[in-house]
């Protein structure tokens, strides 16, 4: 259920576990669904021997997609107005990711109530992998 304006205040936080022990299979699922078949994300031999990485790593868009669950859980899919991120570290198979949303503003614009949130997704070492912002429409 989407939050209501009356239920939230600036500074409120919402935490969500995005994935535990990220599997290579999930990278393949994301490749198949999104159409991004870059072998860096599905082909360990290519990633190691040709591209020079320790192995396959997650699409940035997979991490952004998982982080987006915090946004859609909070606002509901139909109420997302804006969602943007910066990718700050790579995500690897085996990673545990969790995300935190912080309410930055609750405001009125064009007859709607909008909520701005800041998002931070971190791995099991506390490294930030994605930083983002989102805006959603909420009911009073």
């Amino acid at each position: 259920m989407a939050v209501k304006a009356s239920e939230i205040s600036v500074g409120d936080t919402f935490d969500e576990v995005l994935v535990e022990d990220l599997k290579r299979t999930q990278l393949v699922m994301y490749s198949g669904a999104s159409g991004d078949y870059n072998p860096l994300h599905s082909d360990d031999i290519y990633s190691r021997e040709v591209a020079g990485y320790p192995g396959v790593f997650a699409h940035g868009m997979l991490t952004m997609g998982m982080t987006g669950r915090v946004v859609t859980d909070l606002f509901g899919h139909e109420n997302v107005k804006k969602y943007g991120v910066r990718f700050t570290n790579q995500v690897w198979p085996g990673d545990d990711l969790k995300s935190q949303a912080v309410v930055e503003d609750v405001r009125e614009e064009g007859g709607e109530i909008l909520v701005d949130i800041k998002l931070t997704t971190t791995n099991q070492n506390g490294d930030v992998v994605v930083m983002g912002n989102a805006t959603g429409r909420v009911d009073p």
């Binding site: 999930q26 669904a33 997609g65 998982m66 669950r69 899919h77």
Partner: peptide
């Protein structure tokens, strides 16, 4: 299918 790949089962 896209949703499943990011853990969104809506």
């Amino acid at each position: 299918m896209f949703g499943r790949s990011i853990g969104d089962y809506a």
